[in-house]
């Protein structure tokens, strides 16, 4: 098991290398860091050349990449070209916020989607099934950010206007009250709800299909034939096997959740990594952007690994080799 994990992490290195090279070239092409000195009249042409040379920006991009890689391997992720803060510190401040949002969404999605998907399959073509399938079909077509906007408009702006108890429109804490757990929960409700609705849709559809498939299998007929109760057949025999493909879905979904979190953070002014990314995307602040891309990629790799371990635990046919 330990060796399996180590081997999988080693296998991820070429992937991370490829992603970092691709990302570096694209990001370096996306903006000129010198533009931030823009119309600074105090800066002579000689000063500009010195700054460019000091950063190595006169070298080809691929050479710059290997400078960056060398520093990263030594543990130096560089400093932001704008705030002069160390990149590690900037990401470290934002990482927990993104994980809080994503973790909540993940748990909420599973808690709601699993029972609904299973129920929908067991009671196929019932009214509840049509309702659940219909809503998830609808949620599949909703732009996440627009659902966020509409929720803010309704639950924050309009509820306040009508004098009803309303939810905060954005941010993570009440600025006046300062950080507190109840404050965090209040601010978490809307973004977590919006992201969950959208990600639930996929899970419900998938689980329903998978459960229906399993319910048609021969061993389910056998279980029924030997007189097991409907509950026992559904939950002890079918449910556990229908759950296995779910793990694959989770794996495939991790990058999508990050993308969803990025835009949701923007809509709800949630101070996470996605917002940091958008704030610096237009400025060519490549140390920060690279740090973020690599952090997210690493989290995706770890997420995939965790999913595979769970997969093996659920399915006795799979063994680590």
């Amino acid at each position: 098991m330990g060796r399996y994990i180590v081997r999988r992490l080693l296998q991820a290195i070429p992937l991370l290398f490829l992603i970092s090279l691709l990302a570096f070239v694209l990001i370096r092409m996306s903006g000129d860091p010198m533009s931030m000195y823009g119309g600074n009249a105090a800066l002579t042409a000689a000063d500009r050349d010195r700054i460019i040379a000091a950063h190595g920006w006169d070298k080809p991009i691929v050479v710059q990449y290997f400078y960056w890689l060398r520093d990263v391997v030594r543990g130096d992720w560089g400093t932001s070209l704008y705030t002069y803060q160390p990149v590690t510190q900037m990401i470290w401040e934002r990482l927990p916020n993104t994980l809080i949002l994503m973790g909540t969404v993940f748990v909420l999605t599973l808690i709601v989607a699993i029972p609904l998907g299973i129920y929908s399959a067991i009671r196929q073509y019932s009214f509840a099934d049509y309702l659940i399938t219909g809503i998830s079909f609808l949620a599949f077509a909703i732009p996440t950010f627009w659902l966020g906007l509409v929720c803010i408009m309704l639950f924050s702006v309009k509820f306040k206007e009508w004098g009803w108890p309303s939810l905060p429109a954005g941010g993570m804490y009440d600025l006046a009250a300062g950080p507190s757990f109840p404050g965090l929960l209040q601010h978490l409700v809307l973004p977590a709800f919006v992201l969950s609705i959208v990600s639930m849709a996929g899970y419900i559809r998938y689980l329903r299909a998978s459960m229906i498939e399993v319910l048609r299998d021969d061993y389910i007929r056998t279980a029924r034939a030997k007189g097991l109760s409907e509950g026992s057949v559904n939950w002890r025999h079918a449910f556990r096997n229908a759950l296995i493909p779910l793990v694959t879905l989770i794996t495939m979904n991790i990058p999508t959740i990050f993308s969803g979190a990025l835009v949701t953070e923007q809509v709800f002014a949630w101070p996470g990594m996605g917002r940091l990314f958008i704030d610096h995307a237009n400025r060519g602040d490549y140390p920060v952007l690279m740090g973020l891309v690599m952090t997210v990629s690493l989290l995706v790799v770890i997420g995939n690994l965790l999913a595979d371990i769970v997969y093996a635990a659920l399915d006795p046919r799979i063994r680590f080799q």
């Binding site: 490829l18 694209l26 996306s30 903006g31 990058p255 891309v293």
Partner: peptide, 22 residues
């Protein structure tokens, strides 16, 4: 297939933004 896996594990929106700016 390695390339496909690599692109699949990329959070698309991040790259979309970078590409769009560049």
């Amino acid at each position: 297939m390695r390339l496909t896996d690599a692109v699949l594990s990329i959070p698309v929106l991040f790259f979309l933004i970078v590409l769009s700016v560049s």
